[in-house]
Design a protein around this nucleic acid. Sequence first.
DNA 1: GGCAGAATGGACCAGCTGGTCCGTGTTCGC
DNA 2: GCGAACACGGACCAGCTGGTCCATTCTGCC
Lengths: 218, 218
Amino acid sequence: MTSAGAEPSARRLTARGALTRDRIVRAAADLMHANGVAGTTMDQVVEASGTSKSQLYHYFEDKDALVTAVIKMQAARVMERQEPHLEQLSSLQGLRRWRDAIVRFIDERHAAHGCEIGSLASELTDRSEPARILINATFQHWESYLAAGIRRMQERGQVDPSTDPAELATGIMAAYQGGYLLSQAARSAQPMALALDLAIRNLEALAVQEKRAPEAAS
Amino acid sequence: MTSAGAEPSARRLTARGALTRDRIVRAAADLMHANGVAGTTMDQVVEASGTSKSQLYHYFEDKDALVTAVIKMQAARVMERQEPHLEQLSSLQGLRRWRDAIVRFIDERHAAHGCEIGSLASELTDRSEPARILINATFQHWESYLAAGIRRMQERGQVDPSTDPAELATGIMAAYQGGYLLSQAARSAQPMALALDLAIRNLEALAVQEKRAPEAAS
DNA sequence: GGCAGAATGGACCAGCTGGTCCGTGTTCGC
DNA sequence: GCGAACACGGACCAGCTGGTCCATTCTGCC
């Protein structure tokens, strides 16, 4: 379900229409990720998506509606990329693999651009309340995956059970977002690596002292 | 030294001129912090600063030059606000006081707006290389204060001396920036509190075990 | 096979945006 | 006290931006 919210009267969509709509959102998402929302014009979206002005305004009431669809698509994209790592997260090892994947991802892109959701958050949060709510919900959803993983670690005795998983998850998310921002500014994946290391080290420190506990096969 | 860089030919500035220039940068900084760089028009700056178009372009070659001045002013403002806390930082207690001041600051503003530098970073880093370099330098400078404080803590035996203070500082900065972003999106100071707590807890965990060591007066 | 509604093409527009220009007032240094 | 450079006011403009409109072509469905 990569497609995003409708709005402009839940009109019927033919298969062809749905495809066109998707091309528009995809093009808009890429442009806005690279140039910002304000830095992306409707004409650019038209050209990049190979559609026309009338189509754009046929599927979206105005730019705000398009932006809403873009937020939803980016949220879906990010979650799709993260899910494989977070879905069954249940150990510090898994968390470290998650960290490695992120650092590698940023490194491959030479730390150009920021987090798809984070940059939208920074630009839109103060400008549009509906956008803020949507973005905040995305963060929450994202964090809930981390929290669930941490809870599993607690159950397995890898992490101190007295600390609230949701709060730890927020802390880790903050490290991720801040790490992304610093990496973007430094054009290096190192800040992200340091930020996530600090966050993970925190769980390790909280770990039940039996560091070398009986490891299940795997 | 709140005023920012010149550029448009280091022309001579009369006292009156310097004042006008400063009013312009100040107004631009406030507008851009609230509405973003792209969301701030030169006409708005003119109106908010009570100047005229010709003055604006008398002191700044173009919008980019104005933005550069704004970055420098915001960097100075942030550092001015942080220096009292970071200048002689040398204990975990001091770090916690820094944390408290930040959380209070965000709470007072009901978590509206983001970090003055962080939001500029997010918007400009990909769009302007000179801006990126300037912003990155600001982060470095900022982190160096934190690193110096951590080094002092190490010397006093409060923090494990085997960890690189600069790397810890980057991690803390990331927690700060990410915490700010999440707080802005959630309209609550809590994410910031959790993020900084996680970062600080990390130093505590690293602390030499003699937790209740001989405390110097104060 | 024909019609209602979806999909599309693209010309057109009013308002805004960054930036220019020129004339006037002020101030500093000699 | 006087000229040069600085400070200032504000009309003006070309290009862009989000958005409108209407005519035409497809498509699903009875």
